[in-house]
Design a protein around this nucleic acid. Structure first.
Lengths: 356, 356
DNA sequence: TTGTAAGCGTTATCAC
DNA sequence: GTGATAACGCTTACAA
């Protein structure tokens, strides 16, 4: 049904090798021969079989990308950044949603090894992903970690400085007079959680504030987690005046819990988090956040991976730290809603549209 | 470096065929032989080469997915729905962002044909995608369209009824007293745009309202497009009291333009659109929208495709129409912001959290 | 510049 | 139940 090089060769009256040469740049093929091959290709509607080609060349033109949750806008942007860079380099992306589940991640890794992706971009579920990544090392499949490092594993990594970002957020809250700040955070298994918690601790210490273990709520880093965590925070004996949510999704869940109780932000409680959600910021610039250049996480990681694939010597391990950025908005009461400041905020908010 | 069936065969003292049988379910292999093979596999850390396998079996375990913009939450959810269904069936997804560009879409289609994906899910850029899809038909690659049909092309399709959805939105505006309703819509090349515009026209007619051609603003269906369109609407000689945006992204852009002018919704102008943005609705349930079960678009489409792949007879063409749902919120002034109604809205908004 | 032969790593086929 | 052989569709290596 699908034509093969042999069919093309027969029709053009040449050997399969000549066909192969002609369709791969055509160096060392007489122009006339080449034209003959080309018209045979057109006549037969021939498309080279990439699978067969991949078997010989060991080049599949495919990169793997594993993220814990593609619906989290942070990772959605990572995907876009990676896809763009990959496409420009002639690569395609095999997308996998691990749902932060190590065994699901494992399945994907095995499939990718088996199908000979040329390299892998991984936002790992956590430190327990180490076994999965070791598999890649053993099989010599190059990979780059995104957003999260994995304890005891040295490899290329694109991330940001969670300790500093965290401190910025806490210092901001402290400067506004907050003294009891609760944290919604995921398990210590995740490097970003560790860093952000560390930043929180250090910032408290620097401000001479007491560290209250019961104000640290451990949960999953999704909306449901944030929702549950906020409900627990509201039950705390010593009520908090502010909450630091580990990421955008938990912050949304927290907001939802607050609204159900008829509480509002920031008058009843302040709220800050990591990661801005662009769509959300456009409609209602409200949450004070530490923003990360999300798309660059994917773009840089893809570039690192492509580098490693092309200069396939081991190369030095590379570590890219992307900058974070404190964006102060209304969610911690930094701006009182007087008429004058409301006008000021409206003006501040009206940033010029960035056209891509 | 990587062990092959031959290596395993040698180590186990059997033929490659026996190895092949043993690792593929092991029917017709004596249990003892099988165990011997298995231990050889383990010792050599053997992983079958999926590329070679794919060459023989013509099964690559991969589906293609092309969307115009993965960052648009509508398509993000489509991706998740498709990924989930595909994974459960043992398939992986090759993700492509066409950026609504037919030639980019073309490249992807060719790559997928070449790499022998077993089928393709496509949210086409528009009617001009027809040539790309014809390519798939000629090569007998099964595919399913998502969200948009393509003029003159009969094939499996998962979509919703844009005419009806549109009418719901317009009727709602009309019922609130709006008489001049502008539309922000993309080119007629896109089937959803045609349907939504038709619904708009029919609804106006049914309400005995005059149809004003200058109130139809054509643009791209992204945030930048919505932004530009809203600026044009604000310049209209006969000002509109309401705006119908073709989708979530254009609505956000429109909001942005309004805010820059210091205008607010709904007191200065009403705004409605297609597609709810879940994250956004949680934080500020504000926009009145027609919602579509986004994740199901992907899930059903993937299922349709899998069906077509397994019963690889042609099968009847299938057309799934998913329901739309009018969600009335504050963006068209249905609810006046009196204290009592604000309380009512807050209560209405506090839906129970849907835990996935 | 072009062709021949072998091989990539697996499975289909058919024989034993 | 097991194995020899050919085949999948292409490219590498070498020869002409």
């Amino acid at each position: 049904m699908n034509a093969t090089v042999a069919d093309v060769a027969k029709k053009a009256g040449v050997s399969t090798m000549t066909v192969s040469r002609a369709i791969n740049g055509g160096v060392g093929v007489r122009p006339e021969t080449r034209r003959r091959v080309e018209s045979a290709v057109a006549e037969l509607d021939f498309v080279p079989n990439g699978v067969a080609r991949g078997l010989m060349t060991r080049k599949t033109g495919t990169l793997g990308l594993i993220v814990p949750d593609i619906v989290n806008p942070f990772f959605t942007m990572v995907v876009r950044g990676a896809e763009t860079v990959a496409r420009r380099a002639g690569y395609r992306l095999l997308l996998c949603n691990s749902e932060a589940d190590v065994s699901q991640e494992r399945e994907y890794v095995e499939h990718m090894i088996s199908h000979r992706v040329e390299g892998l971009l991984v936002a790992p579920s956590g430190d327990r992903s180490k076994a999965n990544l070791s598999l890649l090392i053993r099989r010599k499949v190059p990979f780059v970690l995104i957003d999260r490092s994995v304890a005891g594993l040295k490899c290329d990594l694109v991330h940001s400085d969670g300790v500093t970002g965290s401190k910025r957020l806490i210092n901001h809250l402290v400067s506004l007079g907050h003294r009891r700040i609760a944290v919604i955070i995921e398990a210590d298994d995740v490097s970003t959680a560790r860093e952000r918690l560390q930043g929180y601790r250090e910032a408290l210490k620097a401000a001479n504030l007491k560290f209250a273990p019961e104000a640290i709520i451990r949960t999953t880093a999704d909306r449901a987690g944030g929702y549950e965590a906020m409900r627990q925070i509201l039950e705390l004996k010593q009520p908090s005046t502010a909450v630091f949510a580990v990421n955008n999704m938990t912050a949304l869940g927290a907001m939802q819990a607050l609204r159900e109780r008829g509480l509002s932000v920031p008058s009843d409680i302040a709220l800050v988090c990591f990661d801005d959600v662009e769509h959300l910021a456009v409609l209602s610039p409200f949450l004070t956040v530490v923003n990360q250049p999300t798309e660059l996480f994917g773009a840089h990681a893809a570039q690192l991976l492509l580098d490693r694939i092309s200069r396939d010597d081991g190369g030095r391990r590379r570590n890219i730290v992307l900058p974070t950025d404190l964006i102060v908005r209304g969610s911690c009461g930094a701006q009182k809603e007087t008429t004058s400041s409301r006008v000021a905020r409206r003006a501040a908010v009206a940033e010029p549209l960035r056209i891509r």
